[in-house]
């Protein structure tokens, strides 16, 4: 009987160089085909976070609240900001930012952390950054629940049906994050500098994004930024993906602070043109990220 007829045969040759299209197809097939693996990796990740702390899973809720508290104290008490309903103003931007920052931080080390595994088992490495990102998605859902509870209980004046846009904005952010995560996870295998550098770049990015401030509002505050950067600088700031994303989140959750900085208009639909453009850009980033990742994947086991 011919064994080859029923068992899969694998043929690997040094002469073989796959096309970008086939790499992309592979990446897609691997992520879809290995959902179970991704699920197990996520559950291991969640268990790990819960087991090292006394409060365990309470941190899922407490962590974003404390972070908001720190900025609330810093900005309203020390810097005397008087934006109305400042807690919601901050939270609507800090929460999605925190989602992004921790996703990238996790993803950067997702491949190098599994050095032993990669050297001993043959499996699609793309599941590593994907599961890192996916487990942060679960993390986000806790924070999102807090925002919604906060809105209903304390800031009902801000709540409108425009909250329904949240999943759309989150999807665009997810794609952007995924694309970037695939690239940094792959590059970090070859240059560990990326891991160190990314922490600082993310912090800088945070302050350059409308997280603690907003475009076109609280005139005095934004005016200072405008003066410092000039017109070109401000246009660049607006092109920043997180300028679009955070503004969109704030539009639908908080609304807009009026020009005088003493009142607000409640939740409104996001800038769909900007969001749509960013959506396409992010999709392109995912494609490029997947191709880059798959292209260098065969070298991981040798370099690690």
């Amino acid at each position: 009987m011919d064994i080859a007829s029923e068992a899969p045969a694998s043929f690997r040759s040094s002469a073989h160089r796959p096309s970008s299209a086939s790499l992309l197809k592979d990446a897609f097939r691997e992520v879809i085909g290995r959902q179970r693996l991704i699920r197990y990796l996520i559950s291991a990740d969640i268990r790990r976070r819960g087991s090292d702390t006394i409060l365990g899973n309470v941190w899922w809720v407490l962590d974003p609240l404390l972070q908001m508290g720190v900025y609330l104290i810093l900005l309203s008490v020390i810097l005397q900001r008087s934006t109305p309903d400042f807690a919601l103003f901050l939270f609507s931007a800090i929460l999605p930012w925190k989602w992004f920052a921790s996703s990238i931080t996790d993803a950067v080390s997702s491949v190098v952390r599994q050095e032993r595994l990669i050297k001993q088992v043959q499996f699609p490495k793309i599941v590593l950054p994907v599961s890192a990102i996916a487990s942060e998605l679960i993390n986000l859902s806790f924070g999102a629940a807090i925002v919604l509870v906060m809105m209903v209980l304390f800031f009902p004046a801000h709540a409108t049906v425009n909250v329904a846009w949240l999943p759309v904005i989150a999807l665009v952010q997810f794609m952007f994050t995924l694309g970037l995560a695939l690239i940094v996870a792959a590059v970090n295998v070859f240059y560990r500098d990326v891991g160190i550098l990314s922490g600082h770049l993310i912090r800088l990015w945070f302050f350059l994004s409308p997280s603690l401030w907003a475009f076109d509002s609280a005139a005095g505050r934004f005016g200072a930024i405008e003066d410092a950067l000039g017109e070109v600088g401000v246009s660049l700031l607006r092109l920043n993906p997180f300028a679009i994303l955070l503004t969109a989140y704030r539009d639908v959750i908080y609304g807009r602070v009026n020009a005088a900085g003493d009142g607000f208009t409640p939740g409104q639909p996001p800038d769909l043109v900007a969001l749509g453009a960013l959506g396409f850009f992010s999709l392109g980033l995912v494609v490029i990220g997947a191709i880059i990742f798959k292209r260098v994947e065969p070298a991981f086991a040798k370099v690690l």
Binding site: I3, A4, A7, P8, A9, S10, F11, R12, S13, S14, I118, K119, Q120, V121, Q122, F123, P298, A301, K302
Partner: peptide, 18 residues
């Protein structure tokens, strides 16, 4: 299949416990 060959060919027939 963990490391790709730099030259030459590897052929494997069947499921490999990796």
């Amino acid at each position: 299949g963990i490391i790709m060959p730099s030259e030459g060919v590897v052929e494997v027939n069947g499921h490999v416990s990796t």
